[in-house]
Structures are given as C-alpha cells and as structure tokens.
C-alpha cells in the first residue's frame, strides 16, 4: 500500500487495518508522533491529514493512504514554523512528550483561524492532554503567534 508523508512517497506491506501511528513509528522511524492512549483521547499522535488535525492512532492505513500526511518532522525544515518558534519563546515544554501533538493541533488551528480567542483555543486544544500542565503557556504561545501575524500584516 502507498503512503505520502511529509511530501515523500512510501510503500508498505503492512495490514490495511494498521493504524497510521505504527507505520510512522515502527516502519518509517518518524518517532516524533507519539503513542499516548491508542484511542484518540489524548492527542499525542496528532498529525495533519489533508491539513486537518487527525489522531494517527485511529487512522487505519487503508484510509491514510488516500491523503497527504504531515508529521512534526515535516511541519518545517528546521523547526522554524511560527508555532515552533513561539513554543520556544514561551518555554512551553516540560517533559515534552505531548508537545509534537500540541504543536500540530495549534498549527492547524492557526491555519484556519489566525486570531483565536481563549475559547477558540480551549476548544481546538481540548483533545490534547499535557500531564505536566503546560496549558497556560500553550494559550500564551498561540496568542503570541496570532499577534505576530497581525503585526506582520
């Protein structure tokens, strides 16, 4: 079965019901996408599927092979996506394990809503758990990206 990840084409003979997460991690060694719950509850495995934030742990290969997938490794060449930069400016991460998923959700939010309110942020980010409790800085970093966008325009 074919797969397109971060602009590159791959071929896999894995079972069609295999969740995308395990193809990314076990086969492609794109380990920035994390396993946290296996049931689309925690958001640690969030990728962009045709631009939409999607939980890779519940997206079977059969469905995944029909679209474009972007993982944290493909969000930017060198970590220069505005969300990644804002995450560093605000020292958001603690343990960091959930942060790739958080960044993927936040970047998808900002792509469709350049200036989200606190409630917009809570709603878009409610599927991403951070056990360390970095939520206040996640909010601040997202607002910061939005503000920089406004300043630039």
């Amino acid at each position: 079965m074919k797969l397109k990840v971060n602009g590159r084409a791959y071929e896999t003979d894995a079972d069609a019901d295999t969740p995308l997460l395990w193809i990314l991690r076990d086969e492609l060694k794109l380990t920035g996408t994390r396993y946290g719950c296996g049931d689309a509850i925690c958001g640690a495995c969030t990728v962009h599927f045709n631009g939409v934030p999607t939980r890779a742990c519940r997206l079977p290969l059969s469905a995944a092979s029909e679209g474009d997938i972007t993982t944290i490794e493909g969000l930017s060449e060198d970590g220069s996506h505005p969300v990644q930069e804002a995450w560093r400016r605000h020292n958001v991460p603690q343990c960091g394990f959930c942060q790739a998923g958080q960044i993927m959700s936040a970047s998808a939010l900002l792509a469709r809503n350049a200036s989200p309110s606190d409630d917009d942020i809570d709603s878009a980010m409610s599927g991403n758990i951070c056990r360390c409790g970095t939520y206040p800085r996640i909010r601040a970093a997202i607002h910061d990206v939005a503000k920089q966008g406004e300043d630039a325009s």
Binding site: R25, L30, T31, G32, T33, R34, Y35, T71, I72, E73, S76, D78, G79, Q84, W87, R88, N91, P93, G96, F97, Q99, A100, I103
Partner: peptide, 17 residues
C-alpha cells in the same frame, strides 16, 4: 532555556520507545 527545547519542538527528542 532547557537544553532539549529545540529537539522537543521538532519531534527529534528521544524518549523510551
């Protein structure tokens, strides 16, 4: 800033799995 900050925000940080 944490020494692992860049790796964490780019997905390169290495955890157990």
């Amino acid at each position: 800033p944490m020494v692992d900050l860049h790796d964490i925000t780019t997905g390169k940080a290495v955890y157990g799995a």
